[in-house]
Amino acid sequence: MSEHPDTWRKPPFIANPVLRWGLYIFALGYFLWVGGTLPIDWGRVADGVGRAGRIFGGAFPPSFERSELLIDGFLESLKIAILATTGGVALSIPIAFMAARNVAVLPVYYLGRAIIIVARSFHPVIVAIIFVKAVGFGPFAGVLTLIVYSIGFVAKMLAERIEEIDFGQVEAMRAAGAPYFSTLFYAIFPQIMPRQIGLSIYQLDSNLRASAVVGIVGAGGIGATLANAFGRYDYDFALAITIVIVGVILVSEGISGQIRKRVG
C-alpha cells in the first residue's frame, strides 16, 4: 500500500495566517469606513437624475445643423494631434536614448528619466490649463500640451525597448571601431524601428482623443467646440459632436491597429 497523501492544497498566497486574515479584515474594514464617511448626498443625487433626464431629453435628436463648425473643430483637432505627435516623437527619440540605462552614462540617464517622470506626472488637462495660462487660449496651447503628453509615453516605452535590445550587435560595431553615433544608427535603430513606428501611430491616435479633452479647458480643437455647445445649452449639438468623436476614434483605432500589425 502506498503511504503517499492523496490530498493537496495550493499553498496560500500569504503564508503567515495572522498576516493573511489581518489583511483581509483590514481591507473589509477600510471599505466599510470609506463607504460610511464619504460625503455623498443622496438627496442631491436624486435631484440630479431629473436634471440628467432633461439634458438627455434636450440632446435627442442630435443636431448636425451646424456641421461646418463641427468639421472646423475636428480639422483643428487633427492638426493639433499631427503637429503634437511629430514634435513629441522627434523629442522622444533623443530623450529615450538618454533614459536607457544600457546606452547612456549615469548622469545623462538620470536626466532622461527625470524628464520622462515630469512629463508623465500631470494629466494632460492640468498641463493644458498651465499652457493656456502661459500662451493663451487656442490650438498652440493644445499642441504644447500634447507634446508633453507624447514625450511621457513614447520616450518611456522607447527607452524600455532600447534596454531590451540584443547588445551583441552593439558589441560587433564596437569591435569594428565604429564611433558612438554610427553604432547607434547601425546597431540600435534597426532594432527599435518597428516599435518606434508602432508607438508613433498609437500616439497619433491617442493625441487625437486627448485633443478633444484638452480643448475643454481652452486648448482649441473639437473640445473647445464641445465646451461651447454645453455652455450654450445646445445639448443636441453636443450629442452630435460626441457621436462624431466616438466615430472618428473608432476609425482611427482601426487604422492604427492595422498599420501596427503590419509593421510589427
Partner: peptide
C-alpha cells in the same frame, strides 16, 4: 551568435 543586425 553572429551578432548581425537582423533588420539590415
Amino acid at each position: 551568435g553572429f551578432n548581425l543586425v537582423d533588420r539590415l
